[in-house]
Amino acid sequence: MLESLFVPTFIVALAEIGDKTQLLALLLASRFRKPWPIICGIVVATLANHFAAGAVGNWVASFFSLATLSWVLAVSFIAVALWTLVPDKLDGDEDSSLQKFGPFLTTLIAFFIAEMGDKTQVATVMLAAQYPHFILVIIGTTLGMLIANVPVVLAGNFAAERLPLTLIRRLAACAFVALAVYAGYQALRFSGMI
């Protein structure tokens, strides 16, 4: 049961390092200089976004056999592993028009939108499809986002500039590959090949 919490927390925390939403957190922290409303906005946006993503993953899982789902997950984890190796950049100044709403609402809206189709959202869909405890997966992916983003918000530029982002991206990619191998093993087991 705790695996449904700890694996998503670890995976998303690693995948989030250097991600565009982490860059967005850094940008919001430097613009507003009010960390607690920004952190609260991150929590609410992430819970809403990952709940929806987890619900999709949980729903999709009900349509496939365990073997088929495991093969789909293995391929998806490999794709996310490769995606993790590509550094993210913020596209333009996407939150500038939102600043009039203050730090909480700006963060809530900007984070929710930035997470759409992001690798951590895709990972949440896959993790919710793989693990049976839906709520624990959502809590875990949200904790992973907070583990990666709260220090950035609190420390600002100081922490972000000193992180070994390439190494962290490689570690995250390795974690997704490990999940792919495990899902492949499960697929073979469910197919009766092992």
Rank of each mutant, 00 (worst) to 15 (best):
L163A: 12
R169G: 15
L27I: 10
F134M: 03
N49H: 07
F51E: 06
F158P: 00
P151V: 06
T124V: 15
D93F: 14
T21E: 11
V75I: 04
M145P: 04
L82Y: 10
G102D: 06
V181P: 08
P132C: 14
K100H: 12
K34W: 09
A13D: 00
G57Q: 02
V12E: 00
L136E: 06
L165A: 12
A159E: 02
G192Y: 01
R33G: 05
F64V: 14
T106E: 12
W36V: 00
K100I: 13
M193W: 09
G18T: 08
K34T: 04
S4C: 05
V12N: 04
S96G: 10
L26P: 04
L171T: 11
I38W: 00
T9C: 03
A175Q: 02
P8N: 09
V150E: 12
V181K: 12
L136D: 15
V7C: 08
F77M: 09
T124H: 06
L105V: 12
F111L: 10
T84L: 14
A81V: 11
I38C: 01
A61I: 06
S76Y: 07
S4F: 09
I147A: 11
P87G: 09
N58E: 12
A183Y: 12
L143Y: 11
V56Q: 05
E94W: 12
R169T: 09
L82F: 09
I38N: 00
G140C: 03
R189D: 11
F112A: 04
E115T: 12
A187I: 03
S4D: 15
L66E: 14
A61L: 10
I78Q: 15
A25F: 04
L108P: 02
L85R: 11
E16N: 01
L66T: 15
S65R: 01
E161D: 12
L5T: 00
F158K: 00
E161N: 04
S65Y: 13
T46A: 11
T106A: 13
A148M: 13
N49E: 02
N157I: 11
T84P: 07
L66Y: 10
G192Q: 00
R169S: 04
V75P: 10
S191T: 05
V177K: 01
S62Y: 10
G92K: 08
A52T: 03
A25T: 09
V7P: 04
V43I: 01
A128L: 07
G140L: 02
L171R: 07
T106D: 11
D19E: 02
A148Y: 11
D91L: 07
L85I: 08
F10K: 13
V150R: 13
G117D: 14
Y131A: 05
R162Q: 08
G18M: 04
